[in-house]
Nucleic acid binder design. Structure first.
Lengths: 119, 119
DNA sequence: CGGGATCCACGCGGATACTG
DNA sequence: CAGTATCCGCGTGGATCCCG
């Protein structure tokens, strides 16, 4: 029934599962990717308004991390006032379907989870 | 290119995306579900050994949360010493493919992400 | 064996002020 | 506009001890 490749979850450094969870287990990364997947290109302030409750600091930190991971691109227009555009890279786009699939599940099952919790 | 259902990400309470991220954005939930999906049934200590680095407290907390969400089941054998078995519920099983899909992506792309980060 | 109960450190993340 | 810098509360999560 289940293929057992016997993943070694103990090895935090090399286990991709642990790695990805450490990376996207934070509060904002996944959300930013989802929003960029929906809108294609967004400026810093547009992202912040979209999310609504994120602070400038955390949006900056999150974007930098995702950029250094190669998941999003950052395009700076050298003008005053500055203009910076963020978008998903190819790598980010390849991740997107996996996340939207998760979102779809969330949409379908959140009410059941909530009613379970209420008990 | 993109269907725009215009999700309101600002509404933390009602947005399923925000909800699921708040719920599985912790350090261990996703990992526990993945391991239970692989092994079907596991006892408390077996789970702890599988994960390796989780503390008793966090495993307890995580299991309780997942149980109250209705994602895993908890079967107690009233004997001494006690025996408790954990497994995925139907709901948990329905989530599993979405997570393994994410794991697959992680396996395929983790090396690229790591080399990106190194720059 | 499978937890409960406490204590506590650390770091995530918010609030605020400032800048090119 | 798009950040940077700093301070700091608070919750996550680890360590330890105890119990049925």
């Amino acid at each position: 029934m289940f293929k057992k490749n016997e993943i070694n979850y103990t090895d935090t450094e090399n286990c991709p599962v642990r790695n990805i969870l450490d990376r996207f287990g934070d509060k904002w990364s996944t959300l930013v990717i989802l929003i960029l997947g929906e809108q294609e290109i967004l400026r810093f302030n547009e992202l912040q308004k979209k999310i609504g409750t994120i602070s400038q600091k955390m949006l900056t930190v999150t974007l930098k991390k995702l950029e250094s991971d190669g998941l999003i691109s950052r395009k700076v227009y050298p003008q005053i006032p500055p203009k910076v555009e963020y978008a998903l890279t190819e790598l980010g786009l390849s991740l997107l379907p996996k996340l939207t699939s998760l979102v779809q599940w969330a949409n379908e099952n959140m009410s059941e989870i909530n009613s379970n919790r209420a008990k």
